[in-house]
Amino acid sequence: MSQAVDKIMRTIEQRAGIDQTPEGRLAFWIAFSHLRYEARIKAGAEELRRRAEARDAAEAERRKRESTWW
């Protein structure tokens, strides 16, 4: 994997809440190990985006609740 792609993937992993230790990253990516390289990256990236969006939505909801003080 090129350094640029690795950096992008790490950024998406962080947004998705994936532990950035080698063990944490492995725990995520092992679920896609049965796929060939291109399919593995695509499926993993889709799951990361889904998790990141869900996490962002939960954070937005939390902020919304906190701003409603009454």
Rank of each mutant, 00 (worst) to 15 (best):
E38W: 02
A52F: 14
S67D: 13
G44C: 07
D56K: 05
A16N: 08
L26Q: 03
R15F: 15
G17H: 14
R65P: 02
R15N: 10
W69Y: 10
R65N: 10
D56I: 05
S2W: 04
Q3H: 00
E61Q: 07
R40F: 05
R36I: 03
R49Q: 15
R62P: 10
D19V: 05
R55T: 13
F28L: 05
I12H: 03
K64A: 11
Q3E: 04
R62I: 05
T11I: 10
T11C: 09
A31P: 07
Q14W: 14
G17K: 03
L48G: 01
F32P: 01
R10Q: 04
T68Y: 10
M9V: 04
A4T: 01
Q14E: 09
E66I: 15
S67Q: 14
A31R: 07
R50T: 15
R49K: 10
E47V: 09
A4V: 04
R10L: 06
G24C: 02
E23A: 06
T21M: 06
I12P: 06
A57D: 14
R62V: 08
A54Y: 12
W69A: 11
T68C: 11
K42A: 08
A52W: 12
L26P: 03
M1H: 02
A4Q: 05
A31S: 11
I41N: 04
M9G: 09
Y37H: 06
A57P: 10
S33Q: 03
P22F: 03
K7Y: 05
W70N: 09
A43Q: 13
F28S: 10
R10N: 02
R40Q: 04
R25A: 06
A39R: 15
W69I: 11
L35V: 00
W70C: 11
W29M: 03
A60R: 15
A43I: 12
L35P: 07
S67R: 12
A27E: 14
M9E: 13
Y37K: 02
L48R: 03
R50P: 11
T21K: 00
E38A: 06
Q20N: 13
S2P: 06
E46C: 07
S67N: 15
E23K: 02
V5T: 06
R25S: 00
E47S: 07
E53Y: 12
A31K: 07
F28R: 00
S33E: 09
P22A: 01
S33Y: 15
E23Q: 02
I41W: 00
A43L: 07
A39D: 15
M9R: 03
A60M: 09
V5M: 00
H34G: 13
A52K: 08
S33P: 00
F32R: 01
E59C: 11
A4P: 00
S2Q: 08
Y37D: 02
R50N: 15
F28D: 10
F28V: 14
V5W: 01
A60E: 13
R63K: 14
Q20K: 06
G44N: 03
W70M: 06
